[in-house]
Design a protein around this nucleic acid. Structure first.
Ligand SMILES: [Zn+2]
Ligand SMILES: [Zn+2]
Ligand SMILES: [Zn+2]
Ligand SMILES: [Zn+2]
Lengths: 167, 167
DNA sequence: GATTAGTGTGTTATGTTATAACATGTAATG
DNA sequence: CATTACATGTTATAACATAACACACTAATC
């Protein structure tokens, strides 16, 4: 009895997911959040978020600008950067520093001290929540430092790519 | 008798240190390492490292280039970036992604999964070794991902600056 | 000892990422 | 209707980084 639980093998962080559901959930979540916080989910902001959640992979600001242009929006740099900053501020987008790229948050309801796991070969990026990353932040060394923001990125090679490597 | 032990209060990661000794030690360490590994510690490489260890704070590539220029070296961008890449590769320099800047490693003998603690107000940056950061990386979630490089940066406000803030 | 390969530096040009500063439009508030 | 807040648009430029090629020096290799 019991359906097979997803993520029973917890180590497969790069595995695919039901992206149709993911996309819909994400849109619903951002809509609800914006209403609740009395923020404006304008066409531009919505479009930027959709662009990011659609591919669900990191995109550079100028890639986003291209897509905005094709969708009829202005595509001068400040347009993208401003909206991205706004979405980041509200936890719906993260910047992946190691790639100078932006990615939709996998779960805005969770902590905002996420870890990004980046395969240098297939370039897949997985967001791992604080709870699951095992990175227990505030150490004795840094207890009197007030952490406001974290950048935690683990770069390496995923098992799939490693197995494929010619050694 | 006993000299006062440094870092007895382990939480004061931003505290000053005996930089004369630090500077000397760092130079000795890099010299030894280069000899042992049969690498060339050329005047340019030495100068770049000296520039970084002298201030012992993050410097942008173009700041380093300025200083190189004033010291009689070429100051076109590839000069700095090449040497920085080399020093990073060998663990004597780290890049602080959040600042697009480079900083001399506080202890090249230690792990190379360091944590950087960055005060957004006074802009001080402290490198905390893996051992002391409390960030025990390989979590169950990511055990079949081979980590090659980490970027761990904690941005916030140090206790000194927080106490000084007008609330 | 000429040839080759490896390494380190120099130079020019260009690519990529990000922001400053200012202008315009629209809606809510008084 | 003046004022404010906010969202977007535009131009120009700043800041960060790399490609591609040239040259010098050293150390093998033939
Ligand atoms: Zn997230
Ligand atoms: Zn991979
Ligand atoms: Zn270090
Ligand atoms: Zn501070």
């Amino acid at each position: 009895m019991k359906k097979k639980k997803k993520n029973e093998n917890s180590s497969k962080i790069f595995e695919g997911h039901d992206h149709g559901a993911c996309f819909g959930d994400a849109i619903t979540q951002i809509e609800d959040y914006f209403i609740q916080k009395k923020l404006q989910l304008t066409p531009l902001r919505r479009k930027v978020f959709e662009i990011l959640i659609e591919d669900h992979k990191p995109l550079g600001a100028y890639e986003i600008l291209d897509k905005l242009g094709k969708a009829g929006f202005s595509s001068s740099p400040p347009i993208a950067y401003r909206v991205l900053d706004f979405l980041i501020e509200h936890g719906f987008v993260h910047k992946v520093q190691g790639l100078n790229a932006f990615i939709a948050c996998s779960n805005p309801k969770h902590s905002h001290f996420p870890t990004f796991v980046i395969c240098r070969k297939c370039e897949k990026v997985a967001e791992v929540s604080e709870e699951k990353s095992g990175l227990n932040l505030p150490s004795p060394e840094i207890t009197n430092f007030k952490i406001e923001k974290t950048t935690i990125e683990l770069t390496g090679i995923c098992s799939t790519c490693e197995n494929a490597e010619i050694r």
